[in-house]
């Protein structure tokens, strides 16, 4: 069983914001679906980790940031990239290793870096982004800026010493970092409870005096509300916060993982909590847009992503003579 809390009601946000968050979540969902298809057909080199199911944590957090703020992501990071504004065609091309990819096909899904939008990168190393984010916050402080940096990491990274070392430093130096754990209940094929001790995950931040909370990561409004608080707190110079978003990856650890280690009942229950169903319901219940308009938004997202696939797939490969470029700057 996951250490998930039941949804504690959910804050409500401005209708226009909710609509735009819903649209971004839809774009992420269907971007991932397109990647899944491409991977299943053999077009994606290596292993690819999809974030379908976790869109609310990606989008709700990043919606509370300004363009100038930073994020550091992890191996399940396409949603973070898109929420921070990455061009989806360049992202897709990177995941396929193409010359037109955001990193020229050098990095692939796990190391997409997008400095134009303050994205320090997805990261192939569990916990790798955490110190980078703390470092970016240190740099912001040094240049007298109030830019905020969010680091995303999975529940697996909770047990990397680096997280605790960085929380300590962020707390003593009051760095403008928001630590965001996307707790999807599993690290690879291992359930969180089998490897993670203690009665309280927020307790892991509280020991450093860091305001810490666990929230329903399937509710984009709740995620946004928690992020708003943490980002404002950091920007005001008070220091770090720690948010644990309980969520669920709908797919396997990577495309091709059959998830035999998961319990079917649990999977069904989480499926019913799909963050997209939730925000669609909130949008129509509040009369912000009609159900038809919501359905149209989804169609638009599907068409946008599906339309890219063939072009990206047939894109050119990086040229051999570029091999040794950028080893040194």
């Amino acid at each position: 069983m996951n250490k998930a809390l039941k949804n504690a009601g959910g804050a409500s946000v401005d209708g226009r914001l909710l609509l735009s968050m819903h649209r971004t979540m839809l774009r992420i969902r269907h971007f991932e679906e397109t990647i899944r298809r491409l991977a299943a057909s053999g077009a994606v080199p290596g292993l690819v980790h999809l974030c379908a199911g976790q869109e609310a944590t990606n989008v709700g957090i990043i919606a509370a940031l300004e363009d100038r703020d930073f994020i550091a992501s992890h191996h399940r990071g396409h949603g973070h990239c898109i929420a921070k504004g990455a061009p989806v065609e360049g992202l897709m091309a990177e995941i396929l290793g193409k010359a037109s990819g955001m990193c020229g096909g050098r990095s692939g899904s796990m190391h997409v870096i997008d400095m134009e939008r303050g994205n320090l990168g997805t990261n192939g190393i569990v916990g790798g982004g955490i110190p980078l984010a703390a470092g970016a916050a240190l740099a912001a402080r040094a240049r007298g800026s109030d830019d905020v940096c969010v680091c995303f990491f999975g529940d697996g990274a909770l047990n990397q010493g680096l997280l605790h070392e960085c929380m300590n430093m962020a707390a003593i130096w009051k760095l403008a970092v928001v630590f965001v754990c996307e707790n999807n209940g599993y690290g690879e094929f291992t359930a969180i409870d089998d490897v993670t001790a203690g009665p309280s995950l927020p307790g892991r931040g509280e020991v450093f005096g860091i305001p810490s909370e666990m929230i329903d990561g399937m509710d984009v409004q709740a995620v946004y509300a928690a992020a708003r608080k943490a980002v404002d707190y950091a920007r005001a110079g008070h220091g770090p916060s720690f948010i644990i978003c309980n969520t669920w990856r709908f797919g396997g650890h990577h495309v091709g993982d059959k998830q035999e280690y998961k319990d079917d009942e649990e999977t069904r229950a989480w499926r019913l909590r799909d963050p997209l169903l939730r925000s669609a319901k909130a949008l129509s219940a509040a009369g912000i847009v009609s159900e038809e308009a919501i359905a149209q938004m989804e169609q638009d997202a599907i068409s946008e992503m599906a339309a890219l696939a063939d072009g990206v797939r047939n894109g050119s490969e990086p040229a051999a003579q570029t091999l040794l470029e950028h080893v040194y700057g």
Binding site: P45, G97, R106, E317, P318, A320, T322, L323, L324
Partner: peptide, 16 residues
């Protein structure tokens, strides 16, 4: 291996 990180792109990877 030549002195470059291993690139993701399959043809570049093959080249190293």
């Amino acid at each position: 291996r030549p002195m470059t990180p291993v690139p993701f792109s399959p043809p570049l990877e093959a080249a190293v």
